[in-house]
Simulated assay, not measured.
Amino acid sequence: MSGTTNTTRVAGHATSVSWIPSEAVKGMMKGAFASGVSHYDTPPPPHIDDLSAMRDADAFRFANRIAGWAEFDGDRVVGFEQEGGVVMGATTVKVAGAGVTFAAVTMPDLRPEPEVGEGWVRFTQTSGGRTALPLPRRVSKPPFVRMQSPLVWSTLRLTLHADGRSEVELIGASPFPRHWVYDDRDDLALKAGVADWAEWLGQPSWQATPWGDQDSPVVVAEAESALERQLSQVLMHGAAKPKIREVKVGETLVDQGDWGKELFLVLDGVLQVSVDGEAVGVLGPGAVVGERAFLENRPRTSTLRALTAVRVAVAPADAVDRDALDELSGGHRREEK
């Protein structure tokens, strides 16, 4: 589409990278991963330098790359175009000690008509596929047993604004594997809160996916800070092994006013943060919390309630350098924001 001599062109992109985290697989298949027949993935980096190189290194299962541009005459949209698509990885398994790689099966990208408003254009894209390897599994509907692996996918929404802003949302995704979303600067911005192997394994057919008649809603949290990523390594691989605690949906991890000196690292799931009964934010995988009660020698300043099933690592606050906790605390005063 053509514009006028006074038009402004805005371009943007976003990427979801989907990968299998350690200990995410349950049941009989867990043994295959533990024995090295298949493998977990190393967590993707906080910044994407080369998506193709990551794919060639077998660093993820699939990626969803959405891109587009729009031209604006003031707030009036005069032109736009959407690009991108699935970047499918492969599955490498060990057979008789040798690695054998199987190309994945790619599903067609789904792109509804872009939405156009005053001063903005919104693109949506669903991408995904499945591994080519058979995966025997039970399902709740006839024929009750399937040999084909379930489909995986993510649905991204990219909004371009006349003022030059680019916004990305993760509005749907398969329950498994883990989905991380990178923004227009290729920096990690969002995380799907849950990687649910059991729910994904029970996918009855392709009809229960976006290529049939339904998507899966996803609970999303902002990505953790660089400091939290560093602290998570200290907590998980320090001298004292942390305890793992599971919290059911609706239960509280801590209540405002409780006394306690532990730190919590969210491993899986999403916690709602409430202060004086008012929700002020959510925490997802990678978040580190609980330091203020230790630093200020006071009761907990907020209530943490599970929006999904949650797994956290629990460690004493003195397992981490106090200066690092002071810096962490500076970004956690949600009740003051």
Score class of each variant (00 low, 15 high):
M1R: 08
M1N: 11
S2Y: 06
T4G: 03
V10T: 14
A11H: 03
H13R: 14
A14W: 11
A14L: 10
W19R: 09
M29Y: 14
M29W: 14
H39R: 15
T42A: 15
D50K: 05
S52V: 12
A53E: 14
R55G: 04
R55W: 03
D56K: 14
N64F: 04
R65Q: 12
R65S: 05
A67H: 07
D75F: 02
R76H: 10
V78W: 05
E81R: 14
G85Y: 06
V86C: 13
T92F: 00
G99P: 06
T106M: 07
M107H: 10
P112E: 03
E113P: 01
W120E: 11
P134E: 09
R138P: 00
F144Q: 00
M147Q: 08
P150T: 04
W153A: 03
W153E: 02
T155E: 09
L158K: 12
G164T: 13
G164K: 09
E167R: 12
H179D: 00
H179W: 00
G193W: 05
G193Y: 05
D196S: 13
Q207M: 13
P210S: 12
W211L: 09
P217C: 05
E224W: 10
E228W: 09
L231C: 07
S232T: 13
A239F: 11
A240L: 09
A240C: 02
K243W: 00
V247G: 04
L253A: 03
L253N: 03
L253E: 04
G257E: 01
W259R: 05
L267G: 01
L271N: 04
S274F: 04
R292C: 07
N297L: 10
R300T: 01
L307K: 13
V310M: 09
A313T: 02
A315I: 15
A315T: 15
E327F: 03
R334F: 12
R334K: 04
R334L: 13
